[in-house]
């Protein structure tokens, strides 16, 4: 078996290094090598968005990134969204608007929505739906998710 590659990254503000095979996706590295299992595997081909993470300020599906590509990258995962035991306004809005049922898609939706609100603090419903088109939810029918993002936008602007 050929040697593994040593990768150094920053994940949720902390230096993290890991060993991986070049064929391993960043998603597999996060879950299996680093133990950050908040990022979920859905389709494993880039359609469902459950594995969305933020790399260097852009959201991507981590199943379509090789772990070795993360060298030097600054990565945000769902584990970095809350401030200790204080939930992020998006997380509170998702809970209070019942924007989830099974919850598998939720980490991806939160990471995607957070990136949207950081660049567009007051998005229209149309903008929210198109931004989140790469995140699939089989439970809610999306309306509650859209309302949660609108609610979070309001909370963040009032904060």
């Amino acid at each position: 078996m050929p040697a593994k590659t040593y990768v150094q990254t920053t994940i949720n503000g902390e230096h993290v290094d890991f060993l991986c095979e070049p064929r391993q996706s960043l998603l597999e590295c996060l879950r299996d090598e680093i133990g950050l299992t908040g990022t979920k595997e859905g389709c494993n081909d880039g359609n469902c968005g459950a594995c969305t993470v933020n790399i260097d300020g852009r959201i991507v599906t981590s199943c379509l990134v090789l772990g070795v590509e993360a060298e030097g990258a600054d990565i945000e995962t769902i584990e970095g969204v809350a401030d200790g035991s204080n939930l992020h306004p998006l997380q509170l809005a998702f809970l209070e608007n019942a924007a989830l049922q099974c919850g598998i898609c939720t980490p991806g939706f939160i990471i995607s929505s957070k990136a949207l609100l950081e660049q567009n603090p007051n998005p229209s419903e149309h903008e929210i739906r198109f931004w989140l088109a790469n995140n699939l939810c089989r439970c809610t029918g999306y309306d509650k998710i859209v309302r949660a993002v609108q609610d979070a936008a309001k909370r963040l602007q009032e904060a």
């Binding site: 880039g46 968005g49 969305t52 790399i55 852009r58 959201i59 991507v60 599906t61 379509l64 990134v65 995607s112 990136a115 949207l116 931004w131 989140l132 088109a133 790469n134 995140n135």
Partner: peptide
């Protein structure tokens, strides 16, 4: 092409 995540790559 794709959605926001795909357009990032």
């Amino acid at each position: 092409i794709g959605g926001t995540q795909i357009q990032g790559r």
